[in-house]
């Protein structure tokens, strides 16, 4: 199985160098080759497991409780303005 590394990197928003693209091409293919063994497993009529707790519809009361202040919430950002996160322009 050959992975289109460039396409996947774009989906994952990962900047990759040319060397990395070649390296991942090779490494990911060998991992996928190993993973192919799952095809042997008989899974007709088997239900998928997405979580193991068996808990359903866990809710809590919708009541406001103390939370981070605005300053605390933005404290770790490298780029803020007037107490907000600053992001790149989306529209020209």
């Amino acid at each position: 199985m050959k992975i289109d590394v460039l396409h996947i990197a774009k989906l994952a928003n990962l900047p990759l160098s040319k060397e990395e693209i070649e390296k991942y091409q090779k490494q990911l293919s060998s991992i996928l080759e190993y993973i192919e063994k799952l095809k042997k497993a008989k899974t007709d009529n088997i239900i998928e497991t997405s979580q193991v707790t068996n808990l359903e519809n866990v809710t809590k009361k919708d009541e406001p409780t103390p939370s981070l202040s605005q300053n605390e919430a933005i404290a770790n950002s490298n780029n803020t303005q007037n107490g907000s996160f600053k992001v790149k322009a989306i529209f020209e």
Partner: peptide, 10 residues
């Protein structure tokens, strides 16, 4: 497929 195999392992 993996989620189904997970069931088998359980």
């Amino acid at each position: 497929k993996a989620m189904k195999v997970r069931t088998l392992i359980i």
